[in-house]
Amino acid sequence: MLSRTADNLFWLSRYVERADYLARILEATSRLAMLPGAGDTAWASALITAGCYDAFKEIYGEPTTETAIEFLAFSDKNPSSIRRCLETARFNARAVRTALTVEMWETINGAWLELQKMNAKSFATGRSSQFTDWVKDISLRIDGSGHRTMLRNDAYWFTRLGFYIERADNTARILDVKYHILLPEASAVGGGIDYSQWAAILRSVNALTAYRWVYREELRPWLIADLLILKPELPRSLAACYGAIVTNLDSLSNAYGRHGKAQRVAQTIQTALQNTTIDGIFKIGLHEFLTKFIADNTKVGQAISDQYLA
């Protein structure tokens, strides 16, 4: 297929995944911000997780619930607001609509049309959960329509790679922003606020219920890190993302009859994740581990780009 088509598919998925992730951050933070004493730092932390704190501060100064939601959800001034992500996704989709099934295209285009009808009021405080629910629903429909209707060929694999590379990055960033409350010694501090913070992390990766099914005990920060990094059964864990990245890259190399740097780097990351434990990670340092992971994940994205998309 055309390199440009593959590139558009890859980024289309990344933007949809990012919109979904931002919706989860918004939702988790809205809950957190309602707790006494948590509001001040909650939105700053959310903006840092979304990678747009500096841009925000330049325009608004200190975050409030209203300004942070506006900026993350809807603002034109934020190139990765949810709205802009969905618009960019649709732009990419329109550029390659021949590579999409009708079902996928209509889902994306339908979402974009609905978005045109929304305005700042649609995101006002108290209504933001309606909006985040809508965004999550859209990403489920795009993901689902792709899964159910696309041919299993390179177009599909590039789409999947976009989802998983972005997802791995997002999960790692959530962990990294919150790493200080996940250190084993943090549990000694304890208290209601920490509990809510931990729950917020799990909510932002859709894993609060999953945690209970996997560990069957109360929230422990190191187990949260274990779940999000190493448990392949959690769809947003780094291990699960890399399982999928390696599989999809293998499908590409089998179809094209050529193995490249992307395959090698991804395989190395996966092997490392399989051969480590959460204790081992805490020994290296959680922050150090995540910093390296984010850099490695970016390398895989770059290698995919060099190998196929240029």
Binding site: M1, L2, S3, R4, A6, D154, L252, Y256, L309
Partner: peptide
């Protein structure tokens, strides 16, 4: 264009 032929850039 290469050697007076037209090519497209593909993933392969």
């Amino acid at each position: 264009i290469r050697d007076d032929h037209v090519y497209m850039r593909t993933t392969e």
